[in-house]
């Protein structure tokens, strides 16, 4: 049964991939990309990688789709048909693919307990997590505690991406003329969005604070949080969404998340430990770990949510100019 589901899902993934390559309508391609992410997330569920599945669902199927759509809104709706077929790219792709397939021959078998990846540090993490960290979800303990440096690096990368988008698109600097809006026509959507909005934010908080026990954590929570605001912006107009959460505030929040993360690290140093050592944060090491993980997850969540909203607002506030006119006939 397990294998059947695996094979069917992989087959669906492949078919979807080919269809994405063949299709010319960019909106349809975006839709299919979202379906592709759904399938790969399903595959992660089947493989028992719940945290990855949640991330893929929230980021791959959710935010990427929305950002791709915001981009398509700025360009044309159809892919241009290439004027000539070149054989060189095909050759390069075929050779690379063949090399990759050749490389997989040396890989350990699927689920092999003696594979190098299962023998290096993973057993230590799995064995030590109950005593040292005391959280049931080992993924969270690895990401937030054992590999706290790496996660700090990742958050900084996300923050830098937000700064980059701000520098390039300058969300809050430009005075925008309000679009003639048809938002008053969307009665049904607006009511439903109002119904969903608080629940989405509540669910994001649940994912954030429940990350120690189940799938989830700062990254996923931040994305879900941002999705809630995107829904609001879609149904109530960008102007209203920016009144709810001003872009200037978003910039501050994005920095505040990283700051909170590094402040936890420095607090550990001040209390006599090492940078990002949570054991010293409370009286006994395990509750110190709990507190530290909770704080840095919150920091990650704040930064991720703020940066995604910065990028979204940055893209959407650029309305299509003249680049829109050349639809193919």
């Amino acid at each position: 049964m397990q294998h059947l589901v695996d094979i069917v899902l992989l087959g669906l993934l492949m078919i979807t991939g080919f269809a994405i390559v063949r299709m010319r309508s960019l909106l349809a391609v975006t839709m299919l990309t979202s379906i592709y992410s759904l399938f790969s997330a399903l595959l992660f569920v089947v493989l028992d990688a719940v945290d990855v599945a949640l991330t893929e669902a929230a980021i791959g199927a959710g935010i990427s789709t929305i950002l791709l759509l915001a981009t398509v809104a700025l360009t044309t709706e159809y892919e241009k048909v290439p004027s000539h077929r070149s054989l060189l790219p095909l050759l390069v792709v075929t050779l690379t693919g063949a090399a990759l397939i050749y490389g997989t021959l040396d890989m350990p078998h699927y689920g092999d307990p003696n594979a190098p990846v299962h023998r290096h540090v993973a057993p230590d993490y799995i064995e030590d997590t109950p005593e040292e960290i005391g959280v049931p979800n080992v993924v969270t303990s690895v990401l937030a505690s054992y590999r706290g440096y790496d996660t700090l690096g990742e958050v900084t990368v996300i923050f830098t991406a937000g700064v980059g988008v701000l520098a390039l698109l300058g969300v809050h600097l430009r005075k925008r003329t309000e679009q003639p809006s048809d938002y008053h026509k969307l009665v049904v959507l607006r009511v439903i969005a109002k119904l969903f909005f608080p629940l989405i934010l509540l669910f994001a908080l649940y994912v954030l604070f429940h990350g120690d026990y189940g799938p989830g954590g700062g990254f996923q929570a931040g994305v879900i949080f941002a999705t809630g605001f995107v829904l609001y912006a879609l149904t109530h107009g960008l102007g209203n969404a920016e009144r709810v959460i001003p872009p200037a505030l978003l910039g501050i929040l994005a920095a505040a998340g990283v700051l909170l993360y590094s402040a936890v690290g420095i607090e550990g140093m001040l209390l006599g430990g090492k940078f990002l050592e949570y054991n010293v944060l409370a009286d006994d090491p395990v509750s110190g770990q709990h507190l530290g993980i909770l704080l840095i997850e919150t920091g990650v969540g704040i930064t991720v949510a703020a940066v995604i909203l910065i990028i979204y607002f940055g893209f959407v506030s650029r309305r299509p100019g003249g680049a829109d006119a050349q639809d193919p006939s």
């Binding site: 049904v188 959507l189 439903i192 119904l195 969903f196 629940l199």
Partner: peptide, 13 residues
């Protein structure tokens, strides 16, 4: 709950 509301709304849109 989410499905009962989101399904018909999506179809309506």
């Amino acid at each position: 709950y989410f499905m009962v509301f989101s399904g018909p709304t999506a179809v309506h849109a």
